[in-house]
Design a binder for these strands. Sequence first.
DNA 1: CGCTTCTTTCACAAACTTGTGAAGTTAAGG
DNA 2: CCTTAACTTCACAAGTTTGTGAAAGAAGCG
Lengths: 174, 174
Amino acid sequence: MTERADRADRSTVERDPEAVSRFVEHFAAQLVEAGVPRMPARVFAALLASDSGTLTSAELGERLRISPAAVSGAVRYLAQVHMVSREREPGSRRERYRVHGDQWYEALTSRETVIKRWEHALREGVDSLGAATPAGRRLAETLAFFEFVDTEIAEMMNRWRAHRERLFGTQGTH
Amino acid sequence: MTERADRADRSTVERDPEAVSRFVEHFAAQLVEAGVPRMPARVFAALLASDSGTLTSAELGERLRISPAAVSGAVRYLAQVHMVSREREPGSRRERYRVHGDQWYEALTSRETVIKRWEHALREGVDSLGAATPAGRRLAETLAFFEFVDTEIAEMMNRWRAHRERLFGTQGTH
DNA sequence: CGCTTCTTTCACAAACTTGTGAAGTTAAGG
DNA sequence: CCTTAACTTCACAAGTTTGTGAAAGAAGCG
């Protein structure tokens, strides 16, 4: 694809920037409601809605009307949770941020990390309350639930990869 | 090692309150990190760690050192997301809050509600960006992912119920 | 090398959240 | 009915979080 994807790519459909913005803000709002900090959510939504799947810091700042500092912070967050990756553009000090079509919801599912910590806390609880007490038994059951979910999610992702291939041909976007 | 305390007599076991508190705060902290507001997280953890699975407002206030107002707010939140239910104690104006051993992680999984809203936003996005554009295709794939997850989660919960029965005999605690 | 362009860091002000005391509301039990 | 126990609502103070401007930090390119 060309370096200037924005202008060059009008081939298919004339895009209404206002409609795009509406989607970006709406989707970002849903992410926020699910616990994602606001700026990261907006930046992420903007990337999702871009044709190339990559935008520069300047483009993000312009589209979302936020300062370079805000972009910087948001991107740092997103990179940390593996929802975007950063690439340096070879002949420039410009940085590009990219959403890897598939990789990001794999990251989403990687709330595994979260689950692991829950499991740890629960194990502690079973120990200190005593496995024989009613409360201890409840915690043990909850723990078993999470352990079950853990393995199930892994299998689910495998099935998804197969399913996706069936739906969309081979590898995802990018 | 804590068996002496655990093993104590009577229906309501004499429990090392400090160990309980440690678990409550630790588990609550994990919930907070996952996006649950603090007071609801603490109240919920306290309920989880109680033998009966129910506590009154006064008991919660005492154990967590928070005002009745805070209990009230926390419980309202938890009831809304179906993590606890409220019952009125027959001959009294006392209210009891209960964690239904199994029901609550079914609620957890009911991120369906969340997912449904994501799906809606994504469908909107596919429409307004155009299904034929690269961005539109990315959104469509993401949408397909969530639709897939939706059905998978339902099936997973069925498998869990079977699995649980195998592990713990009959149906859950309560 | 040093100029220029882009990004990050930092301190702070604005905006939002949270938990509290106090007043308000509901219903049990005399 | 009236009292009183229990929960809820409200306004606000304290504490966080958020996004910004300003300045410093990298890195291409002449």
